[in-house]
Design a protein around this nucleic acid. Structure first.
Length: 1059
RNA sequence: GGGCGUAUAGCUCAGUCGGUUAGAGCGCAUCCCUGAUAAGGAUGAGGCCCCUGGUUCAAGUCCAGGUACGCCCA
């Protein structure tokens, strides 16, 4: 026997302050380097790759950040316990507009002009600083919540090595011809001369009145050429100058209508709304598809078109909500227009200059501000007889949030990645991906992929990865894949260059073949001004986190692809997409196999958390109040993680009480008794009876435990910790509120008795395994409990231990069923007790039970019922014979299988049969016949549900065909036994309130004027003495210094003192 | 406007393969326990399973349509 195995069993005090326990555990993890050791320990094992989706280091972390971080922690811990090596490299997303906006606010700047006046170098330095500040806040939260991730070697998307990797990837895409420049329609403020982000756009909607004009476009080809005109509606007459086409919906029906003098084409559903009174359909009708490529005469001949245009095109986005169902197309001023016209190879004609005015040379509108031009244009249309109607139209139109200038949707040259070229590949990669929950794959994400549009990559901003494209004055372009390459091209050593603006903008690439007599500017390539979409940064993380391929190429290869990633649902079009797209573009395959997407976290009031609403829950204060474990359990195992969930103090308190403290109290109970008296130690496990030789209660718990291991393991393998959590909660409840409660006496008896030996072994084994199973979800409390419970040769931390395996031989479904019946019967008995007004301490003579399976219950299980209900005898209801009423119901589940359509008739026959006769035959012969439509049908016992109830004189409770009836007749003997129980309780109370230790022996005196009490005391002296650890039990007043209890209710005075 | 999701007790949520007495926790009411005890437990009340239609011997569960809400996108 080793020295350590004889140590007194360490106690877990009944009271525990969870947050301070967690701080202590955190300290120990750091001191003993538990995380590092868990990685070393699995070094040789198979690797399981996890990618950290970098949180945007913008703003401080909120509880919603805890959600994904819990999931990012639970599965790596689980896999680690299973022997996998799970490298966990943290990362921070550093670039992007939100960072810029925050810094702008800090500096009191407003817009790009301000930033440039302030200086891009200084501005970007401030952005970097802001990011670092927030990284610190995230680091602290991450540590506090127990998320094990290597933050010392975190990747940062703003680091030189990272940017270089991104450049490399862009060059791969460039080399494949998929990185191209094209127009992009962006909201644009002509006064500020800048495009606006979606976020800025949302702030600037104002209600304005615009002209609403209906214009005739006379047809020049097709069946209606020269006879009719298309009627087109627009609220932006100034765009008619650039009219390029007219879009119709392919499936909408268009009709020709006439007022007797002219013919117009409109969508049928809008006929009345667009034309008003006096117009009749001519009967001619066409689907949109039939009208494709009909040509028409354009409204204005002010600008040149170098390619054929001005015909009908098909667009799915056309609606018949308002207007005429025929939509004027000006691709320079509308995203839909751009997309539709591009598909027809139509040109992008844009006569509006960057300041919002029309080009000077144009007739009618030259030099006029775009909005101001409406008036002259409408007047001209009217004069030429093209204007059909002119109304005022009030609607909400975006304005610049800064200067209130109406915005222009404007074609701005922009860089795109032609993801549409790899769409099929993306769909194929998605097919191979395991999505949790599964519906995202074909739903939200699949839908997004199927409607894939090219990735608009460039941003006209400052704080981002600069687009590494250099351009010569003659238009030749070079895409640069590394600083080394840039050094070679530029002829200077740039290995220390900060690859951000403005420094990178200063690097020029000389043209070796250029005529040296030209001015310098004409002989060098300069970088294009844009930076790239931050989503590309994060999508590049599989290789960029290692700086690959410029460095650590082998690390990248060993960690690609990932087995697991996880973020909230809003990342479907964000990181989930960029990660898959970048890898598919560069390597031809996706970079992840399993992806879990979580629902959002809401405030307790069901709304989004926002400063404005004042319903924000700060993560660290929450964890310091309820504990990180409670928050982790909530995130992992409460409700359904795929759905939006509300978090607040109430739910967390419930988790603490219901799950964490119940678990902890069971462990604390165990250590209390294991440390009492002679004590229990791990070497006793070897002496304990084999599981199959233990009492049924123990075998039941071990059966439940091993089922639990299977359930939890299976659930975690399927990335569903909520299922695991529910099973764990149920087991904890079984353990605490049935096993421990029913076994108290055996623990009290100590580990030296045969029953005690089993009880200690069983409870220890269950707590040990339960602790392992809970460890990935609630790593603090489990490691704390582990310290008290662990065997001498067990690892120092539960997180260094191995995941348990289920012992299937201990799973006994029949026993499980039987115990479930026992517990249902106990509940019925308790209900009957409550009805009868007889408290449980008063023994009753007997209970009668009517329930399927009752007669087959082993004696040990019946004893559980009679002890729990405190009845002397337990009998089947049938013993009272004629005093029982029977009722029968059809068991549809069983009947349905056999009779199908005939089920209702058989069911009716059962309900109509003589219940008593039917039951008696079923009991006697195992089958019975009923008549159905003149035929005899033989029924088996399980096709009929029997309920039996005694007629009178009993306290009865009955549910779902199961009945418990209590005999309420009290004999004097039973009353005395009840009194003895009351006395025991009084003494136990007194022991406690007089401060005695649980194993202290006492001297006990009693006196009573009641003859019945005296008789009870005499009769039950031995039992009472044993229960309360009395070395003596004497009638009389007792010692003066003894502790006294007087019970008027039972007419007895008791005195006790430590022996 | 499009896509996706959700709707079950006052509240938050489970509900397996479709089976006829739909569950849990919180809250509420009434109690119990008092050697796990600043805890714990029992019992009870409380249901248009969103609506309409369909499939089926049988629908909270499957199908279609609608309504409401949420998210993403326009």
């Amino acid at each position: 026997m080793s020295k350590e195995s004889t140590r007194p069993f360490p106690a877990l005090p009944a009271q525990i302050d969870l947050p301070s326990m967690e701080h202590e555990v955190l300290r120990r993890w750091t001191e003993q380097k538990i995380f590092e050791r868990s990685l070393e320990q699995t070094q040789g094992g198979p690797s399981w790759v996890f990618y950290e989706g970098p949180p945007t280091a913008n703003g401080t972390p909120g509880v919603h950040h805890v959600e994904a971080r819990v999931f990012k922690d639970v599965f790596p811990r689980f896999k680690t316990m299973k022997g996998f090596h799970v490298d966990r490299k943290a990362g921070w997303d550093c670039h992007g507009l939100p960072v810029e906006v925050a810094v702008e606010k800090e500096l009191g700047l407003s817009g790009k002009k301000d930033i440039e006046a302030f200086g891009v170098a200084e501005f970007n330095a401030r952005c970097r600083e802001s990011v670092l500040r927030n990284v610190d806040a995230f680091t602290e939260m991450t540590r506090r919540m127990g998320y094990w991730v290597n933050m010392d070697e975190a990747y940062r998307t703003m680091d030189r090595e990272y940017v270089e990797s991104v450049w490399w990837a862009l060059k791969q895409i460039w080399d494949k011809g998929l990185l191209v420049q094209d127009y992009r329609i962006s909201p644009y403020c002509p006064r500020c001369g800048t495009t606006l982000s979606d976020h800025e756009l949302a702030q600037g909607y104002e209600t304005v009145t615009d002209p609403s004009v209906y214009v005739r476009f006379p047809l020049t080809s097709g069946p209606l050429a020269g006879e009719a005109a298309l009627l087109v509606w627009t609220t932006t007459p100034w765009t008619l100058v650039s009219n390029t086409a007219v879009a119709v919906h392919p499936e909408v029906e268009y009709v020709v209508a006439t007022d007797g003098s002219e013919r117009l084409v409109v969508a049928e559903p809008l006929l009345g709304a667009a034309l008003g009174e006096g117009w009749e359909p001519t009967g001619q009708r066409f689907t949109g598809a039939e009208m494709e490529r009909w040509t028409y005469r354009r409204p204005f001949e002010l600008v040149e078109f170098d390619t054929p245009a001005h015909f009908v095109v098909l667009g799915d986005y056309v609606t018949v909500e308002d207007g005429t169902g025929l939509v004027h197309q000006a691709p320079a001023f509308g995203a839909d227009d751009m997309q539709v016209c591009r598909a027809y190879g139509l040109p992008v004609v844009n006569p509006v200059r960057a300041d919002g005015t029309f080009e000077e040379h144009l007739d009618l509108v030259g030099g006029v501000f775009f909005k101001t031009a409406d008036k002259a244009l409408v007047a001209d249309l009217k004069e030429r007889g093209l204007l059909f109607a002119h109304l005022a139209y009030e609607h909400s139109y975006p304005h610049c949030w800064r200067c209130h200038t109406p915005l222009l949707y404007y074609a701005v040259p922009s860089w795109y990645i032609r993801t549409t070229a790899i769409k099929d590949q993306l769909l194929a990669e998605n097919e191979k991906t395991n999505w949790v929950p599964g519906n995202v794959k074909d739903g939200r994400y699949g839908e997004w992929l199927r409607n894939n549009v090219d990735w608009a990559l460039s941003r006209s901003r400052y704080w981002g990865t600069p687009l590494p494209i250099w351009e010569f004055p003659d238009g030749r372009r070079i895409c640069v894949g590394s600083l080394k390459e840039l050094s070679e091209l530029s002829g200077q050593d740039l290995s220390d260059l900060d690859p951000h603006r403005p420094y990178v903008d200063d690097i020029v690439i000389p043209d070796p073949d250029a005529d040296p007599s030209l001015p310098l500017e004409q002989r060098v390539a300069r970088r294009v001004p844009e930076v790239i979409d931050v989503w590309f940064d994060s999508g590049a993380m599989p290789f960029a986190q290692w700086g690959a391929p410029h460095r650590n190429q082998e690390k990248f290869e060993a960690n690609f692809p990932a087995q697991y990633i996880c973020e909230a649902i809003d990342q479907t079009r964000g990181w989930f997409y960029s990660l898959m797209a970048v890898s598919t573009l560069v390597f031809g395959r996706s970079s992840y196999e399993n992806v879990v997407c979580l629902g959002h976290i809401l405030a307790e009031d069901g709304r989004k958390m926002s400063k404005h609403l004042g319903n924000i829950l700060e993560p660290i204060p929450v964890m310091d109040r309820h504990g990180a474990d409670a928050l982790r359990w909530f995130m992992a195992a409460s409700g359904s993680p795929w759905m939006p969930r509300r978090v607040g103090h109430t739910v967390l308190e419930e988790i603490v009480r219901k799950v964490l403290l119940t678990y902890y109290n069971s462990a604390s109970f165990f250590t209390l008794y294991a440390g009492a008296g002679q004590g229990w130690s791990h070497d006793r496990l070897a002496d304990a009876p084999a599981p199959k030789d233990r009492p049924l209660l123990d075998r039941w718990l071990l059966s439940e435990l091993n089922s639990l291991v299977k359930t939890v393991d299976d659930a975690l393998e399927r990335f569903d910790p909520a299922i695991a959590g529910r099973a764990l909660t149920a087991f904890i409840d079984d353990l605490s509120n049935w096993y421990v409660r029913r076994s108290r006496r055996r623990f009290w008896a100590g580990p030296d008795t045969p029953e005690g030996a089993s009880a200690f072994a069983t409870l220890f084994e269950c707590l040990e395994t339960l602790t392992l199973l809970m460890a990935p979800i609630v790593p603090f409390i489990t490691d704390h409990v582990w310290q008290a419970l662990r065997r001498p040769d067990a690892p120092e931390s539960v997180h260094l231990a191995s995941w348990p395996k289920a012992d299937e031989s201990l799973i006994d479904p029949e026993l499980s069923e039987q115990m479930a019946l026992v517990r249902r019967l106990v509940e019925l008995g308790r209900a009957a007790r409550v009805d009868s007004g007889q408290r449980v301490r008063q023994p009753l003579a007997r209970a009668l039970v009517g329930a399927r399976g009752f007669e087959a219950l082993p004696e040990q299980l019946r004893a559980q019922i009679s002890e729990e209900l405190n009845v002397v005898q337990l009998d089947p209801l049938s013993v009272v014979g004629d005093l029982v009423d029977y009722s029968v119901k059809p068991n549809f589940r069983a009947l349905g299988k056999r009779f199908g359509k005939g089920t209702p008739r058989v069911a009716q026959a059962i309900q109509g049969a003589d219940a008593k006769a039917l039951v008696e035959r079923l009991r006697a012969e195992g089958s019975a016949t009923v008549e159905v439509d003149g035929e005899q049908v033989v029924l088996s016992a399980d096709e009929v549900l029997v309920t039996e109830q005694p007629r009178e004189g009993w306290a009865v409770a009955s549910e779902s065909g199961e009945t418990v009836a209590l005999d309420l007749e009290l004999t004097p003997e039973l009353r005395r036994a009840g009194l003895a129980r009351e006395v025991v309780r009084l003494v136990q109370d007194a022991r406690k309130s007089s401060g005695l230790d649980i194993s202290d022996r006492i001297e006990l005196w009693w006196s009573s004027a009641d003859e019945t009490v005296a008789q009870a005391m005499a009769e039950h002296a031995e039992t009472i003495g044993g229960e309360v650890l009395a070395v003596s039990l004497t009638e009389g007043p007792g010692a003066d210094d003894a502790y006294e209890v007087v019970s008027e209710e039972f007419g007895i005075t008791l005195r006790l003192r430590k022996a």
